[in-house]
Write a protein that binds this DNA or RNA. Structure first.
Length: 204
DNA sequence: CGCTCGATATTCT
DNA sequence: GAATATCGAGCGA
């Protein structure tokens, strides 16, 4: 039985991978003495990033020390430090037609280890635990040491498992970028309250 | 509720 | 020096 989406899953155009990741489960394992603590959430919001075809991508300028995972094997964690305060986590993915790419995980619905998330986040409100790319890395204790971890292996301390089927998925413009705004490469389930704040869909 | 701003790594100019 | 795939505190309405 396969627990995790395999290498083939990530060997497709990043927009397709980003869409299909909505509903999957992001799982973090922390060592705590003899036992292992499991923290996990359902992915409810993602963004796809490309290579030279995408002005918003870190990979648009070629490989650097920071973005090298985007050019390596697919299905691995690309973790970087943003704005000097927050980590963001992606999974590397790309089709054979390009040389780099990744999918940013923007929000989770907490499902396992919620009390641990509360402690790591210093926040009691479950709606605020992982509803943003910087928040979810803090809630799952994801730091630079996770960079390059294989997300297709259920035995690693950071990986992606099959989850649930989303009620709905919509594609919209990406958030917080100045270039590449025409692409509708942000994917989210608008029926959940756990998407990042800027991504809330206005209901009227 | 919405707006401004500080924190400050990485990369580019 | 400036921009960036962010967040939360502080302030005013």
């Amino acid at each position: 039985m396969t627990e995790c989406p395999d290498r083939q899953f990530y060997s497709r155009p990043t927009a397709a991978v980003a869409r299909d990741l909505v509903g999957m489960k992001l799982v973090r394992t922390l060592e705590s003495g003899a036992a292992n603590l499991r923290i996990a959430g359902i992915i409810v919001e993602t963004e796809a990033y490309g290579h030279t075809n995408d002005g918003a991508s870190h990979a648009r300028i070629g490989a650097t020390k920071r973005n090298s995972v985007m050019f390596g094997a697919v299905g691995r964690a690309y973790v970087y430090f943003a704005y000097g305060n927050h980590y963001c986590v992606n999974v590397s993915a790309r089709s054979r037609e390009v040389n780099a790419g990744a999918v940013l995980i923007r929000a989770l619905e907490p499902v396992e280890g919620i009390e641990i998330m509360r402690k790591l986040r210093h926040n009691e409100n479950v709606l605020s635990l992982a509803s943003g790319p910087g928040k979810l890395t803090q809630a799952l204790n994801i730091t630079g040491s996770c960079n390059g971890v294989d997300m297709t292996d259920p035995d690693t301390d950071l990986h992606i498992e099959y989850g649930s089927t989303p009620r709905q998925i919509i594609a919209t413009q990406r958030i917080g970028i100045a270039r590449g705004t025409a692409k509708k490469w942000r994917f989210l389930d608008p029926t959940t309250s756990y998407v990042s704040k800027k991504a809330q869909i206005k209901v009227r």
